[in-house]
Simulated scan of single mutants.
Amino acid sequence: MIARTWHGRVPSEKAAAYHAYLVRTGLNDYASTPGNQGVQVLQRTDDGVTHFLLITFWESMDAIRSFAGADWERARYYPEDDEYLLEREPFVTHYEVLARS
């Protein structure tokens, strides 16, 4: 299993709206991609900025490519992301999952 992590930052006053937007866009796309085995959404607020850390779980690199495309190490963004995000981080990180309970 492979974990794919993505990080984004939004102004704290937009955090709830951004989370709802994530559910409609990215989380919905993850769930509908064959080979996706779940997602965790983490949130932390610090000095007026809310950080989102998404950890998606995939059965294989082929499944990740089905979601992300040929340039699978690049972050995937949606049309309205710029209304929320303070910047677009260009890359995601992948990890081999050694244990999950």
Rank of each mutant, 00 (worst) to 15 (best):
T33R: 04
R44E: 03
A99Y: 13
D81R: 03
R24F: 07
D29G: 08
E89P: 10
S101H: 12
E83R: 10
Y95H: 13
F67I: 05
A31W: 08
A31F: 09
A16W: 06
P11V: 04
A68R: 00
A15W: 05
W6F: 05
A20K: 07
D82A: 06
A20E: 03
N28Q: 14
Y21W: 14
G48C: 06
V49R: 13
K14H: 06
L53Y: 09
T25V: 12
L54W: 04
M61Q: 12
R44F: 01
E59L: 08
V23L: 09
V10I: 09
S66K: 14
G69D: 08
F91N: 09
G48R: 13
Y18R: 09
V97C: 07
G35A: 13
D29S: 14
R76C: 11
A31M: 06
A20C: 04
K14T: 00
D46G: 01
V10G: 02
W58Y: 15
A68H: 03
D71S: 08
A70E: 13
L86V: 00
I55T: 15
Y21L: 05
A15L: 02
H51S: 08
E73Q: 12
D46I: 00
W72Y: 11
A63F: 05
F91C: 09
F57M: 14
L86D: 01
S66R: 14
S32A: 13
L42Y: 11
L86W: 00
E96S: 15
G8Y: 00
R44M: 01
H19I: 02
R74G: 04
I64P: 03
T25C: 08
L86C: 11
Y21F: 14
E96D: 11
R9L: 05
V23S: 08
T33C: 12
T56M: 07
E87P: 04
D62Y: 04
D29L: 09
Q37L: 12
R76G: 09
L98T: 11
S66Q: 14
A63D: 09
L86R: 03
P34Y: 06
H7L: 06
F52A: 03
T25A: 05
V49H: 13
P79A: 10
G26A: 10
